[in-house]
Structures are given as C-alpha cells and as structure tokens.
Design a protein around this nucleic acid. Structure first.
Lengths: 138, 138
DNA sequence: GTAACTGCAAAATATTTGCATCCTT
DNA sequence: AAGGATGCAAATATTTTGCAGTTAC
C-alpha cells in the first residue's frame, strides 16, 4: 500500500513528505470525492490548512486528482483513475452528487456523452454532474 | 421592458424593490452568466453586498435564475428561460465556460443528453459544463 | 548542501447573521 | 399598519501570500 503511494509521488517528481503521503492515502481509501474541509478532518488536523490547499493544488496540476464542479461553492476532488498527466486530465466519467447527504461519487463506468457545440466553440473538457438521491438516501 | 421585470417579480410573489428590479434587469440585459462579483460591479455598487447575496438566493429559490456549477469556487448565475417555478428547475441546456476569459454561456439550443445511471441512483438534475475556448478567444 | 516543502502569521476575500430602519403592499 | 426587504455592523469562514525554519534528496 505504502509503496503505491510513494510510487505515485515519485512518478510525478514530487518529494515524498508526510502531508502528501497522508493526503494521497486518504484519497486512495475513499470511494467518494472530498472537499478541502473533509481532508482537513480526515487528516486528523495534523497539517496546516495552507499545506492542504497547496497539496491539493499540486495534485491537480500533476494529474493525480481532479476537481469536480459544484453549484454550492465547494469544489470537491477525487483520484484520477485514467491516464492523467501533468496539465492534461482525461477524466471523462460522470459525477453524481447526492442532494441529501452531499456525498459525491465518480461513476467511472458512466461515460460522458459527446456534446455537439455551435460553430466557434472549442471543447477542452466536458463535465457532467448529476444530482439526485444516492443509494443510501433513497 | 420595465413591465416585464415587474411582472416577473409579481408572478413570483416578490415585492418590487429597487435592488430586485436592478438585478433582474442586469440579467435580462446579459447574454452570459454572472457571478456575485459581476453583479456587484454592474449594479454600480448601489446596493449592499448582503442584499445581492439575498436577492440571488431568493431568485434561485423562485426559479428566476439558476446556478451553474464551476470548478473554481465561483458559482455563476443565469436567467431561467424554461418554465422553472418555485423549487423546480428545468434548465436542461448545456453550459460553456471559456478557460481563457472565464465567460460562461448558456447554450440554450444544446440539449443535455440522457445519462443512464447505475441501479439505485435517482436523477434529479443533470448539469453539463463544457470548458474550452469561446468564440472570442479562439 | 540545496532546493523544495511546511508552518505560522497575517492579509485579503467571501459569506452569514442579527438587528434596527425603511419600503412595499 | 404590518410584514417583508434593506443596510449596517460584526461575526465567521475561506483562500492567498510572504517568509523563516525544516526536510527530502
């Protein structure tokens, strides 16, 4: 387990520090997406808030995690399972956010459909966020 | 013009106040989605920041505007053109956010495709946010 | 040893709440 | 006149920045 964490960091030319190991471990243990506040809690408050901000930003830049848009001013993050690399995300799965418990899932097997845009718009990424009731809340 | 604004407010059982008229007018004049800060600027800073927060919230609740999810911690809002009513939004069009100028468009004619979810998930709403380069920036 | 990373302090920004006053109906 | 909306003050929360000390390599 620990090997996988260290490998991931090294592969992305990141030095292996306690905070990065712990935050990456939290994501690996987790089935759902996490907001900054979740990570603060789950890390046992061992790390400074600022370190968490910076670590999340670094992970996004490296393609280790991706951010999931939300309509409630609280961006969540989840592990990239696809072949994302520095500056290039390829997460083309659908996200689901439960209106009741606010849990956010990556539906890895639900592929984002192609969207035909009007002339002149260049597509870089398509985010699909479905909301409703999740398994537990329905 | 003014009639339309007043009608909309009355139809939603809202009292007709200067701030509501002005903020609704800004949305009617606008082709793109607006963040809280945009409205603060465009309103000429005649209204308190708090009033703008409360007005936006009220408009969303009444189905006059809808919020557009974003991955950058700045939710934007746009007029509902469909038949939205109190507590029930039906905005099933695609949104486009330009990576360069951050302008956000409602693509009213691009319909959100149906997404098939795994057993147990109940769909309430599907948000599609496409990002890339808009007409002006490409 | 050096570059990179972290923690702390503080600044800047964003959002929420309570309450007195004012405005709409 | 009464209820709702606004403005102000202040509390709270969030995010960013600079810098000195620490750690990974």
């Amino acid at each position: 387990m620990d090997t996988r964490i260290i490998d991931t960091l090294k592969r992305n030319q990141l030095s292996v520090t306690d905070s990065r190991k712990k935050i990456l471990e939290i994501f690996l243990d987790q089935q759902t997406a996490l907001a900054h506040a979740d990570i603060e809690l789950q890390s046992g408050e061992d790390f400074d808030r600022v370190t968490i901000y910076r670590t999340l930003q670094t992970f996004v830049e490296k393609g280790i995690i991706h951010s999931i848009p939300s309509a409630d001013n609280s961006v969540r993050y989840a592990l990239c399972k696809d072949a994302c690399s520095e500056g290039h995300h390829h997460d083309n799965h659908v996200h689901f956010m439960c209106d009741t418990c606010l849990t956010t899932y990556c539906l890895d097997h639900v592929i984002v459909p192609t969207v035909a845009l009007p002339e002149g718009f260049q597509v870089n990424q398509v985010d699909v966020v479905v909301s409703g009731k999740c398994l537990k809340c329905s």
